[in-house]
Nucleic acid binder design. Structure first.
Lengths: 144, 144
DNA sequence: CCTATAATGAGAATCATTATCAAAGAGCCT
DNA sequence: AGGCTCTTTGATAATGATTCTCATTATAGG
């Protein structure tokens, strides 16, 4: 069902694991919703069909294969979302009131500027940069 | 001992809580190290003197008063660091291997560029930006 | 169809964090 | 100093998220 199935299947087989129905369900649930979700939330989203422990395992496998990415939020909860190469590169607006996380994509000009900046920053420290993520804290429309 | 003691004391009394020795120890430990630390790490840093549950409580009180700031990292661990008004504005280099977090301060030119960028970004969404934090993921010297 | 291997389910175990409650400490009034 | 009240602490139990275990089931390849 998910549009990306083909590519995900490929990626998983490269990692040497199967794209089983359980894992497909997790991916489908993640594509159905519009933001990062925790294992427990996904378990509910799937109607409790897939046991929690399996959800965790699927997420671990999918993360290992680079299909999903973890997003660490308040209260020690880890939420996952589809990886950037599937969902597109984006940044986060975090509401300091309600904790909601909103995805935002930068217009190309700004994104390029940011990338150049990240390059310079990691040059300053002896650090080989992989990815970057700009987190803007503020107050969302609902909480204003 | 910490340079900021006076200001912290003031801030805490405004919040209506005492600046006790336990809390002073936590602050001292946080000023002694050079990056975000978890409750457990601080407990060790203080030689196991202060019990873990007290460290958690102190951190909660200090966060409430705006003296320290939480930083949510990998695997459900929350690390704290001194608030920006005490430690200065900075960004984080996160090692994807060992999870270590290193503080980095941008040279003024870059920081100004970044601020301008953040302004434009929050303008795109209807979001009133408060702070921002650039997180660069990569591999630290030790893990290379 | 058989066999070897990978994946799953259910529950126990672990780790970070929070809550509880009795005891110790600080501020205050006399 | 003594007594009173309110805050803080320490030790420990409880909670919640995540990981592990292991017996069972599914899958791919012959």
């Amino acid at each position: 069902m998910p549009i990306h199935d083909r590519r995900i299947e490929e990626r998983l087989s490269e990692t040497g694991v199967r794209y089983t129905t359980g894992r497909r369900h997790v991916v489908a649930a993640l594509e159905r919703v519009d933001g990062p979700r925790s294992a427990a939330e996904l378990h509910l989203e799937m109607g409790g069909e897939v046991p929690v422990s399996s959800v965790y395992r699927s997420l671990a496998v999918l993360e290992e294969a680079g299909v999903v990415e973890p997003h660490h939020g308040a209260r020690g909860i880890t939420r996952y979302e589809m990886a950037e190469w599937l969902a597109g590169h984006h940044h986060h607006l975090v509401c300091i009131e309600c904790g909601a996380v909103e995805d935002i994509e930068l217009p190309e000009g700004l994104e390029l500027e940011l990338e150049r900046l990240v390059g310079q920053v990691s040059g300053l420290a002896s650090f080989s940069a992989g990815g970057h993520s700009l987190e803007v804290d503020g107050c969302c429309v609902r909480c204003r």
